[in-house]
């Protein structure tokens, strides 16, 4: 029952998205523009600052993620389907997990475009350890999206939600950004110290576990009124 509801919500979101491509295209284009701004601001005499690529990648992910989070729930509000979704005889946490997986899929697609772009523009050896990089990106994005999905869902019925989402999201996701940037920067070193990478990975996974659990616990009381 639970898994089936998750799958139905996820499939609905992905179908809408594949048919319109609205969020995917705008999010990717926005992330690329953000990377461009960093390129103009930071690259001096053809050289990017040391460790800069990791930071730029994560800032682009955070910005694009905020945009995607806002839009997914804005769509539910515009077509007035949020109430229908909440009235459906599905457990509330299943709706949350379905939405979260949809956003994760979307952001993973955006990251698949961003990583080569940043590697190309800032001469960063991102693809030296592809498995580690993928693990860091997935666990970091999961932590970011876990908090973001809950906040975006709750903000749907609130005034000035577009401004409030980043205002609430960034202070809470600081550990994800720190750990993601540090782990990615450690991977970019010529001699990778895997002890450091593992430490940050462990922190990211712990963050994911705690915040997904909290979100599952609070989604029901917070979405009921």
């Amino acid at each position: 029952m639970f898994l089936r509801s998750v799958w139905l919500v996820l499939r609905k979101d992905l179908t809408v998205e594949v048919r319109s491509m609205e969020i995917a295209l705008t999010t990717v284009f926005f992330a690329v523009s953000a990377v461009m701004v960093f390129a103009f601001a930071l690259v001096r005499e053809g050289q990017a600052p040391e460790d800069g690529a990791a930071g730029i990648l994560w800032i682009a992910i955070a910005f694009a993620g905020t945009l995607a989070l806002g839009r997914t729930f804005e769509r539910e509000r515009q077509s007035e389907t949020l109430r229908a979704l909440l009235l459906a005889p599905a457990p509330r946490p299943a709706i949350y997990v379905g939405k979260l997986l949809g956003i994760l899929a979307l952001l993973s697609a955006a990251e698949a475009m961003l990583v080569p772009l940043v590697a190309f523009l800032f001469q960063a050896p991102f693809l030296a350890h592809p498995v580690w990089l993928a693990a860091i990106l997935v666990s970091g994005t999961a932590g970011f999206a876990a908090v973001g999905t809950l906040f975006a869902a709750m903000l749907v019925r609130v005034r000035s939600r577009d401004v409030l989402l980043p205002v609430l999201l960034y202070p809470i996701t600081v550990p994800v950004i720190i750990a993601g940037v540090r782990a990615t920067a450690a991977l970019l070193q010529p001699e990778v110290d895997f002890a450091i990478v593992r430490f940050w990975m462990a922190l990211l996974i712990a963050f994911d576990v705690v915040f997904v659990t909290l979100a599952l616990w609070t989604f029901e009381p917070l979405m009921t009124d």
Binding site: V147, F151, M154, L155, V158, S160, P175, R182, T218, D225
Partner: peptide, 28 residues
């Protein structure tokens, strides 16, 4: 600026803010 319904959301934010403290502490 949240308007009606922001009281529960604010409580959720405070809860997440509390849960966040150890992570910030370890990471920094």
């Amino acid at each position: 600026y949240g308007g009606p319904g922001s009281d529960k959301l604010a409580a959720g934010l405070a809860l997440f803010g509390m849960a966040n403290v150890p992570f910030i502490y370890i990471s920094v």
